[in-house]
Design a protein around this nucleic acid. Structure first.
Length: 271
DNA sequence: AGAGGTACCTGGCAGC
DNA sequence: TGCTGCCAGGTACCTC
């Protein structure tokens, strides 16, 4: 499911309910996620207060004074706020219950997500320390993409989906941003001009920002903190639109496979 | 170092 | 109504 806009939507949805609240209990029904949910989480988190909910790339960070819960939603995960009396459903693997009667519930059918506890600086955790630029911060620019791409033969779509280059851009928004910038997804990253990278950086920002405003994209699973879907799907131009006419030029959208992921593009608008 | 392939897991859907 | 195979929003790890 979740790329940056869905994770950010989740962050905004859950923060008002849990920031300033104290954890009463942690229930782990299935610890077999991408990494096993550590036993120390259920032991250490109760009694601690959530000071902030932050995001780094597609990771959520629930910060307490002396430790952080690192959450990743994988392909199919979602976090939502429910009453602590709400009966768990299938794939509701972890509950974090608060003193105010609310419960933060992790649902993840495919179990590619993770949830772990660290007492150290989460940004230096091995899973987070190599993550690249945040596309919605002031420091992000086409210049950075241009410089990082020199000498790279990898296709530009795979380049911008590389989390060590750029944080949070997954398959949907890579497709959409390349369409918006008029760049062909198969073009080698190292053979794109500085000017075109400026345009791409602008498109990435715009697409991500617009998606956040719509509460993210729901293809199947994604729900926000209140259990509601995102509405950006109706604003997609190419993703999952193979064979349909391009909204700009009516040429049928092409569907190919790139690095075992689906790529959609307009062969006329993107070059 | 970069690039490509595979593995992890469940569920939905198309086709037979 | 099955059954089978393929596909899905991600990422780590292994090879070459």
């Amino acid at each position: 499911m979740p790329e940056l806009p869905e994770v950010e939507t989740t962050r905004r949805g859950i923060a008002p309910t849990i920031v300033g609240e104290t954890v009463r209990r942690v229930i782990v029904r299935n610890r077999h996620l991408r990494h096993p949910v550590s036993a120390s989480l259920a032991r250490q988190l109760p009694g601690k207060c959530i000071n902030a909910v932050k995001r780094r790339g597609k990771y959520l960070l629930l910060e307490t004074g002396d430790g952080t819960v690192i959450v990743h939603l994988g392909m199919s995960g979602s976090l939502r706020i429910v009453a602590d009396t709400a009966p768990p459903g299938k794939h509701d693997h972890v509950d974090i219950e608060f003193n105010n009667g609310h419960c933060l519930r992790l649902h993840d059918p495919r179990r590619f997500g993770l949830l772990l506890w660290t007492c150290a600086d989460p940004l230096r955790h091995p899973l987070l320390r190599d993550i690249g630029m945040e596309p919605l911060t002031d420091g992000f620019s086409g210049d950075l993409l241009y410089e990082k791409s020199r000498g790279r033969r990898v296709a530009v779509k795979q380049f911008i989906m590389n989390a060590n280059i750029l944080a949070g851009v997954g398959n949907i928004y890579a497709n959409e941003a390349l369409f918006a910038a008029g760049i062909h997804p198969l073009r080698p990253a190292g053979r794109i001009s500085r000017q075109r990278y400026h345009r791409l950086a602008h498109s990435i920002r715009q697409v991500l920002t617009a998606a956040i405003e719509q509460g993210g994209t729901t293809l199947r699973d994604f729900v926000n903190g209140e259990g509601k879907p995102g509405y950006f799907r109706q604003h997609l131009h190419v993703y999952d639109k193979g064979g349909l006419p391009c909204l700009d030029c009516s040429t049928p959208i092409r569907h190919i496979s790139q690095g075992q992921r689906s790529t959609y593009y307009c062969g006329r608008c993107q070059h």
